[in-house]
Structure formats: structure tokens, C-alpha cells
């Protein structure tokens, strides 16, 4: 099963709708709550990142008998130093999102923490593609 979402970059208030939908679908499929939680958090963090840093993007989710794969792609500014961005506490989020409780520099670390595989490809000025997978077995 594959799912596709357009992530609206303008609206911080609706950020999380794609993740919420994925969570709902996984629940309907009878996936365990622990797996759902890991997928939902990783996906939500990715979705929020695209809203904060890239003015939105697209998300594709593939559900196979073996694992759940998430691919998030945007046309934002890109990440100059991925290793630095992966460090807990490092953030380039603007001040206005701090007031909402975001920008703590824990988004990418959380995505790595809750997934079994994570790959980031990014080109400055072109965009970023994040692939994440959570194994079901």
C-alpha cells in the first residue's frame, strides 16, 4: 500500500495532518501500537521540518509486509552540514517557531532514534530528501 501527501508549507496550524492520517491507516491495518508510535513521531518530525525550513514538500509512505518506508522530499534551502544538523540541540529554526515549542534541535535525532534506517540527501539551494524505514519484523 502506498500513500501520498502534499505538505502545506504555509500553514503551521495544520502541520501533522499527514502523520495523523498515516497513524490512522496503520491502526486500521492492525499494526502494533509501538510501531505506530515510532512511525508517527518520525513522520511528524519530518513534516514539521518541511514546514519550518522548506515551505512544505511531498511525503510518500509505502507499507509492505516487512516494513514501513517514508520518503519526504522538499525544494527548500537544503542542509549544508548534515552531520551537524543531526546533533542534538543544533537548530536553525527561526525565533517565531520557538514560541510554539519547536526548534529545540531534536527533530532529526528523534527521526533517527525511532527508525531502523534513515538516509538524508541534501543539496544546498536545491532541496532535501529524507528516507526512513521502520521494520515490522
Amino acid at each position: 500500500m502506498t500513500l501520498h501527501y502534499d505538505i502545506d508549507g504555509e500553514n503551521f496550524q495544520t502541520a501533522g495532518e499527514a502523520s495523523a492520517n498515516v497513524k490512522k491507516v496503520l491502526r486500521q491495518l492492525g499494526i502494533s501500537t509501538d510501531i505506530i508510535r515510532r512511525v508517527a513521531i518520525a513522520m511528524y518530525e519530518g513534516e514539521i521540518n518541511m514546514v519550518i525550513h522548506a515551505n512544505g514538500g511531498v511525503a510518500d509512505v509505502a507499507i509492505t509486509p516487512d516494513r514501513i518506508e517514508m520518503t519526504l522530499e522538499d525544494s527548500g534551502n537544503g542542509i549544508p552540514d548534515i552531520a551537524l544538523a543531526m546533533q542534538e540541540g543544533y537548530s536553525t529554526a527561526p525565533e517565531n517557531v520557538h514560541e510554539l515549542g519547536f526548534g529545540a534541535g531534536m527533530g532529526l535525532p528523534n527521526m533517527k532514534k525511532y527508525t531502523d534506517e534513515m538516509k538524508i540527501e541534501s543539496t544546498v539551494g536545491v532541496g532535501t530528501k529524507v528516507f526512513m524505514a521502520v521494520n515490522l519484523k
Partner: peptide, 15 residues
């Protein structure tokens, strides 16, 4: 003490 609607999404995702 956060009151914006993102707390609901976070609570839902974090279960």
C-alpha cells in the same frame, strides 16, 4: 504550559 494546537498533535503522535 504550551497552549497551541501543535500540543495535541504531539500528544497524539507520542501516544
Amino acid at each position: 504550559i504550551m497552549t497551541n494546537r501543535n500540543v495535541v498533535a504531539v500528544a497524539s503522535m507520542a501516544d
